[in-house]
Nucleic acid binder design. Sequence first.
DNA 1: TGTACATCAGTGAACGCGCGTTCACTGATGTAC
DNA 2: TGTACATCAGTGAACGCGCGTTCACTGATGTAC
Lengths: 205, 205
Amino acid sequence: MLSGPKSYLRENPYMKKSREETAETRQMIVKTAAAEFRKNGLQMGVADLMSAAGLTHGGFYRHFQSKDELVAEACVEALNTLIDSLALTASKNADSGPLKAVVLKYLSTGHRDHPANGCAFAFLGGEIARCEKKTREAVAECYQRLIDLVAGLLPAELGDRGREAQFIVTSMLGAIVMCRIPTDRALSARILNDTAEQIITRYSL
Amino acid sequence: MLSGPKSYLRENPYMKKSREETAETRQMIVKTAAAEFRKNGLQMGVADLMSAAGLTHGGFYRHFQSKDELVAEACVEALNTLIDSLALTASKNADSGPLKAVVLKYLSTGHRDHPANGCAFAFLGGEIARCEKKTREAVAECYQRLIDLVAGLLPAELGDRGREAQFIVTSMLGAIVMCRIPTDRALSARILNDTAEQIITRYSL
DNA sequence: TGTACATCAGTGAACGCGCGTTCACTGATGTAC
DNA sequence: TGTACATCAGTGAACGCGCGTTCACTGATGTAC
């Protein structure tokens, strides 16, 4: 194969370095899109996205078949990064209430005010629900990952930790969706604080 | 004034019937938009919206200064209609658990599958958060209305009914946002049922 | 009451603009021998 | 090693299309006298 006819060459790992660099560029576009979509919504344009990544729009289709493909990957990237960072928060607070730390981090004004690093379920949920099947399924898998993380932080005594985790996650999600609507900062903060307090009290975190 | 010079005529209620009909048409456009926006998102076009209302796009600006003006009114219309219908459900079930009936109606697959009549917080929340101040403030007032409705259905013994209501509403909201993402109907239904069960159990509804 | 005029909701063509996507081209890099 | 050639990420102009908005026009209805 390695010394085979020309038509086979494309399937072999020639030009390794170039391919690695290309993959890095692609990943950088995905990461940029993950931030920009959360800030501006999924209707943000390909040209603006590429320029936020320091490139011009024409090169976009060297990396992606369509904008939809990027949307799917960017949502998954955004969610996995968020879940990783919540898992890190949990392990950093393993001794002093890991779930409490996760809840307080998720329901913080910092989360509310920095959509670029925030929860794509909350910032883009409505739009994702209108996306194509593949995107929705990939995002649903991330949801499962988040549920599993939270379930693992709940006391083993609890009857059905998955169900409790589901409730905790959707509660927090709803609070972040809602708290971003009012322009009244006090009302907004109250939504976050009330929800955090309810969860912490109910689960004695 | 009534017999004053021409320049004053516009301020008087001449052509009463026409003005009423115009107001009805305008209201019909708002109601159509309230449904269409929830189905397709706020980025839905003015031309499609007007054609869904049985009109052509050109007439739009006889009724609204801009699309943003319609967006604000349509969101408020959608939310008030939803809140009214939940209040009706509560009063119909005044004897047999009004809040339980409200929770089960909100967290139903019927709600999930019929966005045209659904909760604009859940279906459009992320997009509304990116709207202009006026829209966000008007929507936040509707949120307060919903909180007050739910708070009024909670037992008076509860310490802070507003806070409890806030938690119930954001939990339900988060569940509806999330349940619309998976294509797996079983997972989707589980999100709704788990949340309903948790709320009903916790508040002994 | 009848006639001439004014109003204005609704129509459909047109506006400039930005969208997702395509394409001919460039130039840096890797391959062939 | 040196030279001729192939690859392909990235560029920027261009594509058709749909967007929000404007405008000259229409025709039904109301007003003036």
